[in-house]
Write a protein that binds this DNA or RNA. Structure first.
Lengths: 154, 154
DNA sequence: ATATATAAGACCAAAAATATCTTATTTATC
DNA sequence: GATAAATAAGATATTTTTGGTCTTATATAT
């Protein structure tokens, strides 16, 4: 497991939406601009977030994205796993059947424990906490503005 | 961070050596054959292990590898970090300067904590424990034999 | 000197990650 | 209904990482 760029973008996107509150609709282009995500890449990531039931995508000329659930119910774990799939530190953990007898394997147990701890840490963190605090990966909310942007897609 | 194939091979190599005891010299080809590692790839990995002070490489016609320290002092963490470099779950953790102000960043702290937990788990596990137990990633020691092999590199 | 081992680094191939492009669809508005 | 402005979906391209191989050099025992 590794936090890929896509995973990082997913976090930024949800964090931006969380700072706007649960129901607020934000256009893809605004999110992309504010959080410095390539717009087309964001589209792909948003689809994964939507499939996971985290955001809702609205089409049409006034479309955009918005959170489906309250930021307090959205954890770092759910966002990350929506983007990069299940977290597993090695194959052995993800696919026990790839080993002959993983239940007896000492190495397997170590990775399995580490994997559980990692998931627990990520699950403990929700987006109310993150939205409230400052994050170096994003502009502070106060600077982000809101405004009706008219951003051209090229 | 992710356990790459190279990291997996590094563990297998050290585990095989650990099962032979600290001072025992084992040829590269024997290790490669026993643990199913491509011989040339093993050479590369061994060099990293040697640079980290975990094994010693002996050249010449009776050369091979052997553990420099007691298996009880060798941890999963040291082997893995010898191969894949420092463990970091995201860039933010590896290079704090890559963020504007990572010390204030809520997301940073979550990853940092998870990272510490992971390293702790890996550091707790040494190769005496691993060598004693069965591991699905390797043939059981009893089947591995010892013998003077004359294995052709082709 | 020779045979047999590893050293070291160049090199290549495959996979994954990142990013973009193109065509289609949806929706509000006129 | 036509148009403009947004996203959908998937194909494609680029870059990076990983995995593996090959070649030439060096070391050591006999």
């Amino acid at each position: 497991m590794r936090l890929t760029r896509a995973g990082e973008y997913g976090i930024r996107c949800v964090l931006h939406l969380a700072r706007n509150g649960r129901g607020k609709l934000v256009s893809r282009m605004e999110i992309a601009t504010r959080t410095d995500i390539p717009p087309h890449f964001l589209a792909k990531i948003a689809q994964q977030l939507a499939r996971a039931g985290i955001i809702e995508i609205l089409q049409g000329s006034t479309g955009g994205y918005r959170l489906l659930t309250d930021p307090s119910e959205i954890t770092l774990l759910s966002v990350i796993e929506a983007i990069i799939g299940g977290i597993s530190l090695n194959d052995c953990v993800a696919r026990p059947e790839s080993c002959h007898n993983s239940s007896y394997c000492a190495i397997h147990r170590v990775w399995d424990k580490a994997n559980r701890q990692l998931r627990d840490s990520l699950r403990e963190t929700n987006f109310v906490v993150l939205a409230a605090e400052e994050s170096c990966c994003l502009m502070p909310f106060s600077l982000a503005g809101n405004s009706n942007l008219s951003i051209e897609e090229k």
